[in-house]
Amino acid sequence: MTNDNDDDRALGQWLSSLQGSNIELSGIINPSRGSRNVGALLDDAGADLNFDREPPEFYKLLLDLAPKDLTRG
């Protein structure tokens, strides 16, 4: 079990030893917003095991959905 102090220490260590930065934790804005942590956000959003997809598939889907008269053969 952790408490806020443990979390702060862990974050401080992450920033200093892994990221090489020495920034006040109090000024940092959580990019996943609100009280939800990044892991919970991704799990809830459906991040899953994807062994059968190529990394650029998002861009391929954009082209697949484009008006057909714009896409080249």
Partner: peptide, 30 residues
Amino acid sequence: RQTIGRLAGGLLTPATRYLQALDLRRTLLA
């Protein structure tokens, strides 16, 4: 102030979770 707060927040993201967020774009667009 606002810029440093947001950018520094990005230093806290685990690489695995960042890549999962990118990977979700295809699923959610579909």
